[in-house]
Design a protein around this nucleic acid. Structure first.
Lengths: 158, 158
DNA sequence: CGATTTAGCACTTTTATCGTGCTCATTGCC
DNA sequence: GGCAATGAGCACGATAAAAGTGCTAAATCG
C-alpha cells in the first residue's frame, strides 16, 4: 500500500537520533555508543522491535555495535554518507513497487504471467527508479539537521 | 513494503489499455466501451479482481460504465487529463508511507505515540509529497504512448 | 424471454506485519 | 570470580491486510 514498515520507522528514528548525537561531538571524534535501551527510553516505541531494527542495521553495515555492559550502537559512517535509500534497502529490501519486482533481470523465471503483454511494466520500472532517486538523494545528516527546511529535502539537492 | 497492490496493477493495466483504445479513434469521437471480459481475454489476470478494480475506478469517476449486454467501460476523461496519482489514490487511497498517515492534520487524535518527539515525522512527510509529485506528474496518456521513452517519464515533464 | 454485463455484498484463504518470550555470548564493574 | 548490563540469535503467537472466490440483483441488447 505504498507504505514503510514499522521496523523501518523505528530504525529511522534511531538512526536520526544517533546522527544527532554524533553531530554533538567534534568532527573526527567518535561519538559514544548508545544502547537500545537508552533510545527506547527517549522514544515511546516497542523496545523489542527497536532492537530488532538496530540488529538489522548492524548486519547491513550501517551501524557499529559494542557488546557487553556499556555497549551500544554508533553510526558506522558519517551521517552525510548514509542515504535514506540505503536505510530503507537495509530494513525492508529495495523497493519493489510491483509484483514483477526485478530491475529488468530474472523476470521470466516463472514469475509474472502478464509480462509478455504487460503495458505498464516499463513505465512502472521507471517510477520505481524515480522513487529510488528520491531516497538516494537524501542523507541522514540532512534528515537530522533541523536547520534544513524540510521543504527543501527532496526537491533540489539533499 | 513500498509496494502497490495487485488491484492497483490490474486497474492500471486496464486503464492503459482503454487509453490505447481511445487513442485509436479520431479526437472528439467517443471510444467504444470495452467489457471486463474482453480486457481479461487480453491480459492473463484474475478476471474477478480486474472487474473489482474497474468497479472502483468507475465509482471514483475515472471510468464511465455502460450496463447490460454490449456494455463495458470507457475513460471518463481524456487520457492526458488523468494522472497516475489519481489512479493510485482511487485504487488504494492516498499514499500514507508511514503509520502517522495524515498530511499534517488530525495527527493527535490518539494516533502516533511518538509524534511529540518524533524526529522523522516532518522529513518523511516531505518524502511522501515528493512521491506524490512523481505520481501526479505523469498522465495516462504518457503511460500509454509507446513513442515516449520511458526513461523520460518521471524525470522532466510527464 | 434469454443472454450478457455491470453492481453490490460476504466470505475464505493466504501472506505479511507486529509484537513477545527465551537463551546465549560478550563486556564492564565491583 | 561473580554479577549486571547489553547485543545476538532463534522461534512462536496475534493481528491485520491483501488476494481470491461465490453468489445475487439490476440493467440492457437482441
Amino acid at each position: 500500500m505504498l507504505r514503510l514498515t514499522k521496523r523501518t520507522e523505528y530504525g529511522l528514528i534511531a538512526l536520526v537520533h544517533l546522527a544527532e548525537r554524533a553531530a554533538e561531538v567534534p568532527v573526527g571524534q567518535p561519538a559514544d555508543v548508545v544502547s537500545a535501551r537508552a533510545i527506547g527510553d527517549i522514544f515511546p516505541v516497542p523496545r523489542r522491535l527497536l532492537a530488532e531494527a538496530l540488529k538489522v542495521l548492524q548486519a547491513s553495515g550501517l551501524l557499529e555495535s559494542t557488546r557487553g555492559a556499556r555497549g551500544g550502537y554508533r553510526l558506522a559512517r558519517p551521517a552525510a554518507e548514509i542515504s535514506l535509500g540505503e536505510v530503507v534497502a537495509a530494513l525492508e529490501g529495495e523497493p519493489t513497487l510491483t509484483s514483477c519486482a526485478g530491475l529488468g533481470a530474472a523476470s521470466s523465471d516463472g514469475g509474472c504471467e502478464v509480462e509478455p503483454v504487460c503495458p505498464i511494466r516499463s513505465p512502472l520500472s521507471r517510477l520505481r527508479a524515480g522513487i529510488w532517486n528520491l531516497l538516494e538523494g537524501v542523507s541522514l545528516q540532512a534528515l537530522a539537521d533541523r536547520t534544513v527546511d524540510p521543504a527543501d529535502l527532496f526537491t533540489a539537492a539533499g
